[in-house]
């Protein structure tokens, strides 16, 4: 395949899994986040620390950009030059978008990050050599590198605090890349238990830690290929398709009155997270 050919057919080359008919049978994990109900309270972020053994890096390392918050709340001000932000701030929960054509996967020299059949972008810590190419290539900047061996770093997990660590997931050592996994440990546990019953997971049986805690239920997580899941219904109602780089509704003249969109969709990573635009009252 020539370079020209590769570039021309990049989208197809990148996104299509060699599937005969139905990809993602029986699962495709996806999310939708309603930014009109998200209040930016950070409960999700703390839940992520609690669930996923994230180290508290301390002030100095935070200053160096080494924070390990898999789930972070970005805050934006309106950029229209007003004296006061009289329509408030805008909060955006940002974590790994579990892209279907993930830019991080293609650049990993050792195949440590790759796609799973259920549509997750997995990270095999034991395979990672710490090249950090994936992080460099991630348009969302949601990959976090272990610059230090946090388990043995002073005051990160003093003896008592190790008792809080979640034994269901690996504690990462120095030189390893990590990121949001959609709480894969919960997904795998759920999958295993329903396999024993000979069925597949129903909507709501697996919740991510952030979704579970969100006081306003702004986060919906579920199986996108299950028509009975809320996330499927939301994506459908918002007319957001997974493997396209421009939604049909956006091509229509005058746009649509639907709120669903994906961030940096035009880069063709095919993110698995749909955001619902924040709404502001027009009458005031």
């Amino acid at each position: 395949m020539s370079v020209t050919n590769l570039l021309e057919n990049w989208a197809e080359f990148r996104h299509t899994h060699p599937v005969d008919d139905v990809p993602h049978d029986p699962y495709k994990w996806a999310m939708s986040i309603d930014m009109d109900t998200c209040t930016g309270c950070n409960a999700c972020s703390v839940a992520c620390y609690a669930e996923n053994n994230l180290p508290v890096v301390g002030k100095d390392r935070y200053e160096h950009g080494q924070a390990m918050h898999w789930m972070r709340i970005e805050r934006y001000w309106p950029e229209d030059g007003r004296e006061f932000p009289d329509q408030g701030a805008q909060f955006l929960p940002m974590m790994c978008q579990q892209c279907e054509a993930a830019p991080c996967e293609t650049v990993c020299p050792v195949g440590a990050t790759n796609h799973t059949a259920d549509g997750l972008n997995s990270q095999a810590y034991n395979r990672c050599i710490g090249s950090r190419y994936c992080s460099a290539n991630c348009p969302f900047k949601v990959r976090y590198f272990n610059w230090y061996d946090y388990p043995t770093t002073e005051n990160v997990w003093p003896a008592e605090m190790t008792m809080q660590l979640n034994p269901d997931i690996t504690l990462r050592g120095k030189g390893v890349m990590e990121k949001c996994t959609f709480c894969v440990q919960r997904i795998r546990a759920g999958e295993r238990s329903v396999k024993n019953e000979g069925r597949i997971l129903r909507d709501g049986e697996v919740q991510t830690a952030c979704q579970q805690v969100c006081p306003t239920n702004a986060i919906t997580f579920g199986n996108l290929v299950d028509p009975d899941s809320r996330v499927h219904q939301q994506w459908k109602a918002q007319r957001v398709e997974l493997t396209v780089d421009e939604q049909e509704k956006d091509k229509e003249e005058g746009g649509s009155d639907l709120r669903g969109y994906r961030i940096l969709e035009e880069l063709r990573p095919y993110p698995s997270v749909m955001y619902l635009e924040r709404v502001r009252e027009s009458a005031i």
Binding site: I200, D203, D226, D228
Partner: peptide
Amino acid sequence: AEGMPSSMGSLAANGVSIGSQAYWYGFKK
């Protein structure tokens, strides 16, 4: 009923779903 995989659908007679039993390596059926 629409022929889509669904958690609320019914299982083929006496069968265990492929998906619920094993993954398909390389997404190959």
